[in-house]
Write a protein that binds this DNA or RNA. Sequence first.
DNA 1: CGCATTCAGTTTGCATTCAATGATGGACGT
DNA 2: ACGTCCATCATTGAATGCAAACTGAATGCG
Lengths: 235, 235
Amino acid sequence: MVDVTTGRNHGKDLRRYLGPGVHRGRTTDAVTDALREAILDGFLTPTTWLREDEIAAAFEVSRTPVREAMRRLADEGLVVKTAHHGTTVAPLSLEDVLALYVVRENLEGLAARLAAVRCPAGLVERLDEIGSRMKAAAAEADTARLSGLNLEWHRALRDATGNSYLGRFLGQVEHAVRRLPSSTLGHPGRADEVLSEHDAVVRAIEQRDGAAAEQVAKAHMRRAREIRLAVMLGE
Amino acid sequence: MVDVTTGRNHGKDLRRYLGPGVHRGRTTDAVTDALREAILDGFLTPTTWLREDEIAAAFEVSRTPVREAMRRLADEGLVVKTAHHGTTVAPLSLEDVLALYVVRENLEGLAARLAAVRCPAGLVERLDEIGSRMKAAAAEADTARLSGLNLEWHRALRDATGNSYLGRFLGQVEHAVRRLPSSTLGHPGRADEVLSEHDAVVRAIEQRDGAAAEQVAKAHMRRAREIRLAVMLGE
DNA sequence: CGCATTCAGTTTGCATTCAATGATGGACGT
DNA sequence: ACGTCCATCATTGAATGCAAACTGAATGCG
């Protein structure tokens, strides 16, 4: 996908990250999302130089929206800009991963607590519904689908908090986590664990027990971090 | 400062937010910081329309850096863009303030805990030093200086966590809090309270007691929220 | 008289052009 | 042979130009 020798990315392949149609008045947003997806997918790696005119050519747009997109991604911490030379995907060190999970544990715990306290109508049903679809995906060992549903579950939870700041921060955390290579859900036995941990969170929410929801959600994240480290350190 | 009748801002006054010199290769950053300061200062209010060419004229730059700056501020949540019509400063509702303090309580608590656990050399001394300067400012009832030192204290604390994600999120929280009208430090008796609450946090850090540091930091934020609400609701 | 419609004006969105700067590779001196 | 200096180039930074889209008001119709 990426020619490491020259550090150049292949335009044709990159193009598919951008939707096929036109992007009336939303070119910059479309380019931002496309680049972000390419990075989160691992298509663009920290070894790749992202040259503005190359990407503009690949997406068949001008440099302006590409420029703005890269600045936004730089603000998000996904890429690093070097003046007058180029932009690369930001590397993610082991320290960064640890720091990320520490923050994530706290924020997800807070989200679970707030969701339990508010417990908006339909929330428990929605989480359970996603959970049953995850169970089906787990039964088929469809890790990709499972991973997508897992994202959906966590998004549903944070949307239920009704706290826009928390939602924004957890969104940024999600972006960072998705950059990590290969989901932890492929780890043997992890899928079932996740299902039961999610269920514990939902049951606590159902009983409006904020403190319990926070505790089990935090435990869920601590366990996720353990698996993540095991995967990253070669198990 | 702002002509509410026309919704237009006075260029000359806005200009001073941008440093006087040249901004070689950093025009966009300079404009972003200038606009952010103008918003945090309350110079640009939610009733003001931010027109790209007006601001560009006021800063004597082209529309391009202004455009990029506004997009960044929109990502930060400070302004709201309406396609093909304009940009306004985002309003901050009472709900937003409550949501903000909920998240802030958690993040500041986490920061205090991490700082206590790591307790890098010189941290306690630095916090105490800022604290004594705050005491001096409080004695002179210099609320503006006190407020600046308060920011410095909280920044020192979060830098000491060594957690880049936490630092980024607390930075965004700080921006949001600074948008609130008039510091709570002007509230009668609040300055002394803040001093003793800060001191309690530092003493817990000094003893490397993470749990205690977290608790007192969270209590500090809960109290800050109370005062904030009292001020906002007309006391 | 009220409502839909259209048309001009304003403002942003993207493309293109121009300028500045850091990097790269070669020549030269030692 | 190696290090330094300088010219050239590649790349980003900022300015300008042009087209699309949203607003608001004026106008025609029911």
